[in-house]
């Protein structure tokens, strides 16, 4: 069973982070939500493994309680 990689992947993490956040700069909260939903759908489809998606959902949901 494939599992979600949670170790660091990117050589240039700041570049990736900047790209993920910059696209929201001019957006309303509603449009931000929609843009992120598109990203999630595209990436989830690329991953194409329900177990991996489940794991990511579980981690994200669990992690929310830390806030």
């Amino acid at each position: 069973m494939a599992s979600l990689k949670t170790t660091q992947s990117f050589d240039r993490p700041d570049d990736v982070y900047q790209k993920l956040t910059e696209i929201h700069r001019e957006l309303s909260a509603q449009d931000s939500l929609k843009l992120n939903a598109k990203l999630i759908l595209l990436l989830a489809n690329h991953i194409g493994d329900e177990d991996v998606v489940d794991e990511a959902i579980a981690i994200a949901v669990r992690n929310q309680t830390k806030a």
Partner: peptide, 24 residues
């Protein structure tokens, strides 16, 4: 929820051009 609205509209926006989104 607002998040759920966002996902629905994201799927509809994507669906015309990207076949994978049609399945949603």
């Amino acid at each position: 929820s607002e998040g759920s609205v966002a996902f629905r509209n994201a799927v509809l926006d994507l669906a015309e051009e990207y076949k994978f989104a049609q399945s949603f």
